[in-house]
Amino acid sequence: MPSERTAVVVEKRPLTPEVRHVVLRLDEPETFSFQSGQIVQFVLDPKTLRLFSLASAPAALPLIELCVDITPGGRGSQFIERLRLGDRVQFRGPFGVFTVPPAETRPLEFVATGAGIAPIRGMLRGLFEAGNRFERPVALTFGNRRASDILYHDEWLALNAREPAFRYHATLSQPDAGWTGLHGRVTDALPSRKDEFQNRVFFLCGSPQMVDDTRKVLEEIGIPERDIHFEKFF
């Protein structure tokens, strides 16, 4: 039986009508360590477990952050929606291999849609809080329907302005009037930049359809399968 940890809800706010940002403070942070991008598993009851990606980096401990789309409406969504400040929750972990390997020094391309940004936010925070020590190019291609759906948009704009190595490519499939960024899905945005992608390592997160479509596009433009890491949000 994995050891169970506890934490208290210290912040909860809507990022959009469908997505919640939740901050938890660990009761025993000295016993917990993780790599940016990993997941934790909440114990809703002994037979019901739900996984959520950590949207924060280790530097934020004893706080950990979640970014959860409650649209599915299932047990996990209901669990998040019922959380109130001060509630104590039980979880297991960290788990998962969707992380930037410490030995990986090549340029990185992160590709997300919607709440698939959660683990990628953790990884980007981890990379730049550590000073992007390899000074490599790092880019985020983030696809959404409308501008109002873009999660943490201001963070990405600020990171883009502050970090010379970072480039932010926001693309909208249903752009609002006045949108000056990219139009279309992430699969439309990536091929035009294929000349940048030599020796680049990809991290994809979003719906199974988005991940599979993006893998196909990347493979068509010659990215080796072993350089495409992904996590599907089922």
Partner: peptide
């Protein structure tokens, strides 16, 4: 799983 990718 595939073995880790070589890094440069």
């Amino acid at each position: 799983p595939l073995p880790p990718a070589p890094t440069s």
